[in-house]
Structures are given as structure tokens and as C-alpha cells.
Design a protein around this nucleic acid. Structure first.
Lengths: 240, 240
DNA sequence: ATACGCCAAATTGCATGCCAGTCTTATCGT
DNA sequence: ACGATAAGACTGGCATGCAATTTGGCGTAT
């Protein structure tokens, strides 16, 4: 490579993995953090230069993301960050609701003490962020809360599926977080889920979590309606 | 390439797609048909020769399959067809049960007439195969039955996730089909699901389907127990 | 002035070559 | 004879070069 190792923000922490795995991880983070928005085109050469590697690992990373449904291939027109239609989004939330409900039920039976601690900590950070109206901190802690439950289910398959889905809808979920009142109503819901899990009441945990995520979906619905009235159409992908 | 385009079993049907997509599809089929068993090692060069392409598209295909969880990377030891532990398998069935239940519920509300026809046809083929004790035909028609419901849910996200999961557990599901009595008990269960969907009764469809798939999982549990007593350990991946 | 067509530049897709890490085998030493 | 170490072959990882296809622009003709 002529420009060789010339990338600005490089020499990152975990260089032990393979380059392609590294690229996968970084792209996921960039998408999850909202730095790459749905519909953004992903140029192989640009990414290769940005990450300081050749096109091959970038291509392999993109293939993996495509298999996850995070990016979509448009033939010769390259790949772009997956753009979910409104219908897709609502569908995705219905799937996420079921999977998170299942995770909660299994977590209620299988959670271990270190995950209890982690869950409590995440819940408290959530509450503090909500009180401080710090949306970004809340978003982060909220992810941690749900991720902890996913891990505590001790169901590897479920955890994988949930992670994929979470990343896929994360850009939209982030937007929902900015909805007024969303943070405040989340806190007691989280509390109920956590209590049910700690009580070992899988049925209750499952039910409350399903409602919690479904409400997120409804919040999304409201948000889209609001945006449409505001004339801000560009966040709405395709309306079919 | 010196040996160039000379591979034995070629002249690929649908050559319109990209080569890597082609390889993905073929490998999925081979795994689904049981020609490649869990634990089988996947050698890049051998696959490249088999499919008459170079290593690059093969590598990309393997990356995609790895992202789907269908194959796993074992560091420098190459990739192999994913080998699910007993715990993983039971977990996978619990996830599949929830997703299929959701699909049934949504299908009850959204199914279209052509899918009704397709579902009825699949059901009848299933019943005929069960009566004829044709395990392979039943396996095929059973896939068709579940796939049709997945499609009829008109939930793209759900359909994708379900497809991934189905392929992943298909080798094991096939084995279950050989369990005595399994086919016969499936028919009325399918019938109940189908009736509930046709009635538009999502709750009932969901409930029956969940039980149906869960029973599959229990059948698996029985099967494994039986095999262990028979001393046939090699089908049991890792018992942790 | 607009529309159609052709040419050029860019971008993706595939192939091949090289390198690094790992597993195997053979030889040497105890 | 057995074990350990080193050398060689094998396999996966990455980079780069070449071909094919699409896109955008420019020129010409109506």
C-alpha cells in the first residue's frame, strides 16, 4: 500500500485479533454510536485507508456485517448501512420484545451473583443519568442494562441473536431516547424487570420486559408521526 | 488459475449472482442437507477447487457463514461447521420456539391467500409423508410448512432471524425426525397451528406453535439420552 | 435547448502471490 | 528407546493487480 500505515486515529487498543475482526468491531461501534447513519454508503477504499489496512479485510468485514443484516449489498453499487423501513422497524421491535422477554425469563432462573451486581449498577447509572437528563449517559447505561440481562440468560444463541438485533436497531433506538419523558418512564420499568429477575419470577420478568420494549416501539411510532408532521422526512427511510 | 474453470460438478444453475453469494448458498444447502456435518472442517483451498472458484469468494462466503453462526472459527485451526453443545441446542430450541410462536401470531393477522394455499399444500404433503413413513419427504415438507408461516408473518426481520436459526439447528432437527412417533404427533400439531392461523386467532396459533417446537426440543432431549445410553457419543458435541 | 449516445473514470469483484503462524515429522541427544 | 527440539510442509491472513461493470460527463445531433 503506497500510503501504507497512514491513518490518523490508529494503533488502537486490541490489535491482537485479526484485522478483519478488528474492522468488524470498529464498524459496529461506529454504527452503534451513530457516527455512520443508515443509508450511508460504505466505500471499500475509504474504509481501508481509514483503518490502515488493505481492502481485503475490509471486504471480509463488510461480508460479515452483511450477513448480520447490518449492512446491505446493492449489487455493483457497493454496500450501505442498512436502512430499515418503518414497517421493518416496528417488526424489529416486536422481535426484540420477544427475545428480550425470553432473556428476562431465563435470566430469572439462571442469573449469577456477579451479574446481579452488574445489573444493579447499570440500573443505578440509568437512574442517575435520567435525573441529570444526560441522554448519552442514559443511552450507554441502558445498553449495559439490557446487555447484562442478555448475558445473565446464559443462553449463547439468544445472546448472539439479541446482539445482532440490538446493533441493527440501535441508531433508531438512540433517537427514541431523545423523546421527552422516555428516560423517566424507563426507570420504573427497569426496576420492575430487575425485581422480578431477582425474585426468580420468570413469568413476571418476561411480561414486564415485553411491555417495556413494546413501549419503546410505540414511542418510535409516535416519534415518526411527530417527525413527519415536522416535515423532517429524511430520517424515515422508505414508507412503502 | 492454472486449473482454471475445470471443476467436475459445475455448470451452476443460477450463475447470475456473485460467486461468493453462490458459494454461501451452496454451503448452506450442503449443511442443511446433512452433507456437511457439525464439526467438519472447512478447507479454503479444497472448497475453492470444489466450487471452481478462487479462494477469495470462498473466504468471503465463510466470513458470512461465520457471522451467521453457522460455522465457527477456531483461531489458526481454520473454520468448521458449528458444533452446538447440548446446552446450546436446548437453548436454540427455546429461542426458535419463541420466534416461531411470534411468526404464527403475526401470520394469523397478516397471511395472504396464496400463502394459505401453500400452507395447506405443505400440510398435506407432511401428512402423506407421515402416512408413507417417508422421513426425507416429511423433513422437506416440514421445512416448507414452517418456512411458509415465517413468510406469512410478513416480518422481514423475523424471517431472516428464523432462517438463520433454522439452518443452524437443521442437522439436529433432521435427526429428531427419525425419532419414532415424531412424524405422527407433528401432524395434528401442525393442523392446530394452521387452523388457528386461518381463524385469525393469533394467541392460539402462537401458543400451539410454541408447544410444538418445545416438544421438538424435548424430543431432542430424549434422543440424546437414548444415544448416550447406547454408547453412541459422537453425535453429542460437547457436554460441558 | 434538450435529449441521446458514447467515452472515461471510478468502484466492485475475483484471482494470485507472499508471509506468518502452526502442526508434523524426523533426527539427535540423553 | 524415548523425549525434545528443530526444520519443513501446510493452512489461513493480507495485499495487490487485473477484469468487468456502472456512473457521470461531455459532445453532438435534432
Amino acid at each position: 500500500m503506497k500510503s501504507s500505515l497512514r491513518s490518523v486515529a490508529e494503533i488502537p487498543a486490541e490489535s491482537t485479533e485479526s484485522l478483519s475482526a478488528n474492522v468488524v468491531h470498529r464498524l459496529e461501534v461506529e454504527i452503534l454510536k451513530g457516527q455512520r447513519r443508515p443509508g450511508d454508503r460504505l466505500d471499500e477504499r475509504q474504509l481501508a485507508e481509514q483503518f490502515g489496512v488493505s481492502r481485503t479485510p475490509v471486504r471480509e468485514a463488510l461480508q460479515r456485517l452483511a450477513a448480520s443484516g447490518l449492512v446491505v449489498s446493492r449489487g455493483r453499487q457497493g454496500l450501505q448501512v442498512a436502512q430499515l423501513s418503518l414497517a421493518d422497524l416496528l417488526d424489529a421491535f416486536s422481535v426484540a420484545a420477544e427475545l428480550e422477554a425470553l432473556a428476562s425469563a431465563q435470566a430469572a432462573r439462571r442469573i449469577r451473583s456477579e451479574q446481579r451486581t452488574r445489573l444493579e449498577a447499570a440500573h443505578e447509572v440509568c437512574a442517575a443519568a435520567a435525573k441529570a437528563r444526560d441522554v448519552d449517559a442514559f443511552y450507554e447505561a441502558n445498553l449495559e442494562f439490557h446487555e447484562t440481562i442478555s448475558v445473565a440468560s446464559h443462553n449463547r444463541i439468544l445472546h448472539d441473536e439479541l446482539r445482532r438485533l440490538t446493533v441493527k436497531i440501535s441508531p433508531y433506538r438512540r433517537t427514541i431516547t431523545y423523546q421527552p419523558g422516555r428516560m423517566d418512564s424507563s426507570i420504573p420499568e427497569h426496576g420492575q424487570v430487575m425485581d422480578a429477575i431477582f425474585r426468580g419470577d420468570g413469568a413476571a420478568a418476561s411480561q414486564v420486559m415485553r411491555a417495556h420494549v413494546t413501549l419503546l416501539g410505540e414511542g418510535l411510532s409516535d416519534l415518526l408521526h411527530f417527525l413527519r408532521m415536522s416535515g423532517d422526512e429524511n430520517i424515515i427511510a422508505e414508507l412503502t
